[in-house]
């Protein structure tokens, strides 16, 4: 058994409710910490006695602790979402590829997140906003089901103050909402996209990523300028067990961040 397969003990130091079913946990190492993650990478989180699940890192890169934003969709994620401060969590990682947002130095960085898909993008946004002068422009487009289901909503103003353009849209809202109501792809047109000088990072439900990428391609971007974060049944984290195979890719190793050039032909294959 290699070290990457042995969970390291962390403790929940902070718990922040994001939405009715989504929680952000901050974890501190109980002993020696794991290696720092890069934006876009994921960890395997182990709820003792329940099971293990892959969760992207949602906190700032280089931080001492780990930050994960988790949506309660099954037994393990529900157990993690209900973890209280002080509770132990097993952690393996970091695993997988990163956004490499710095490839957009000198160009526009366009970040598009749908629902909880904003969580894996947050480290890239925070990293870019540490040195906004190295980008021509940083734009963050956010889509969610409703205003109540926006994650990190309290941070958007801070991101704007740090130099990013942040636009938020929801699928449905009542009269108290003063933002956009539309599909996130409809924010692309008014964003002032320069298709020749933009790197786009997209994360959200697969259909949303496909439609968003198609919108960007129609606007003149190439598939190589677009990166998406894909998810399958990650288990070992090191490309050995094969559970996360996606065509020729083992997503725990070759993903989760993948160029749309590689992802596009695979995303259209049914049940892949």
């Amino acid at each position: 058994m290699t070290m990457s397969q042995v969970p390291v003990s962390y403790r929940v130091s902070e718990r922040q409710d994001e939405t009715h079913d989504t929680v952000t946990l901050t974890l501190e190492p109980a002993g020696a910490p794991l290696e720092s993650s890069k934006p876009g990478q994921f960890m395997m989180l182990y709820a003792f006695g329940v099971g293990e699940v892959p969760v992207s890192v949602s906190g700032p890169p280089g931080a001492a602790g780990l930050t994960h934003t988790i949506r309660a969709v099954g037994a393990v994620s529900r157990a993690l979402c209900s973890a209280a401060p002080g509770q132990a969590v097993g952690v393996r990682g970091p695993f997988g590829t990163s956004w490499h947002e710095s490839d957009a130095f000198g160009q526009d960085l366009l970040v598009i997140g749908g629902g909880i898909g904003l969580a894996p993008l947050r480290p890239a946004v925070l990293a870019a906003l540490r040195e906004p002068g190295r980008y021509r422009h940083i734009t963050v487009l956010i889509g969610a089901r409703s205003p109540a289901e926006l994650v990190f909503a309290a941070e958007y103003e801070r991101w704007r103050d740090s130099g990013a353009t942040v636009e938020v849209t929801v699928d449905r809202a009542d009269a108290g909402w003063h933002g956009h109501v539309s599909v996130v792809t409809q924010l692309v047109g008014p964003s002032g996209l320069d298709p020749r000088r933009t790197l786009a990072l997209i994360c959200g439900p697969e259909v949303m990523m496909r439609l968003t990428a198609q919108t960007l391609l129609a606007a003149g971007m190439t598939a190589s300028q677009i990166r998406v974060s894909l998810e399958r049944n990650m288990q070992c984290g090191v490309g050995e067990c094969g559970h996360c195979q996606f065509g020729p890719l083992l997503l725990c190793r070759d993903g989760p961040v993948v160029s749309y050039h590689a992802a596009a032909p695979l995303l259209s294959i049914r049940e892949l």
């Binding site: 699940v53 629902g115 699928d171």
Partner: peptide, 21 residues
């Protein structure tokens, strides 16, 4: 097209995740 996409309720919990991890 935008209305149809929103009818899909893209951000709902996927069925395959509901009993998953």
């Amino acid at each position: 097209q935008a209305a149809r996409i929103r009818i899909l309720d893209l951000y709902a919990v996927p069925v395959r995740s509901a009993g998953g991890p």
